[in-house]
Design a protein around this nucleic acid. Structure first.
Length: 155
DNA sequence: GCCAACGTTGGC
DNA sequence: GCCAACGTTGGC
């Protein structure tokens, strides 16, 4: 079953894991997502989907690179690890609560598309752009093909 | 470091 | 099932 490529935006704190870190390792299991909506988005991802890599909680928040989905969703191993910050004692191997996908580096943008700049294009991006919706803290969110194309045209 | 916004938890 | 308390996110 094939379907059209979908697009996503995934946030990461550069102090913890930056676009340069992703370039270094190539592919990274996107562990630690502990929000059901974000998890459900990951479960609907397919290999080859496009990912905008976003730096959050830092000096210049914004889109810094492009990645792709490199696996379908599978259980996040950190949920079973008592020593991990992401350990979830309520999750079992029989019925894992949390999932992740592997994310693969594609490219780093020539410049950061800052949140400030993105907000200035609210009209082109439309009402439905989850990133700039008030109070939205989702770390994984969908991007339409039109939004994807527009955002990357800003580079 | 502050704090608004939001999700989750748990007592009732 | 309500909702207050608490924890987290993330811009500023």
């Amino acid at each position: 079953m094939t379907r059209r490529k979908h697009y996503w935006l995934m946030k990461s704190e550069p102090d913890a894991f930056s676009i340069d870190d992703l370039r270094k390792v190539g592919t990274e299991p996107w562990n630690g997502v502990r929000n059901y909506q974000a998890r459900n988005f990951m479960r609907s991802m397919q290999v080859g989907d496009g990912v905008l890599f976003y730096h959050s909680n830092c000096k210049q928040p914004g889109i810094v690179g492009v990645a792709s989905v490199a696996s379908t969703a599978y259980p996040d191993p950190t949920q079973f690890d008592p020593k991990s910050d992401y350990h979830d004692p309520k999750s079992t191997r029989e019925e894992p609560r949390w999932s992740l996908v592997d994310v693969k580096f594609e490219k780093k943008l020539g410049r950061t598309l800052s949140l400030d700049e993105i907000k200035q294009h609210a009209d082109e991006l439309g009402e439905g752009f989850a990133l700039t919706q008030r109070g939205n803290r989702l770390s994984v969110l969908p991007v339409t093909a039109a939004q994807w194309k527009f955002l990357l045209s800003l580079e």
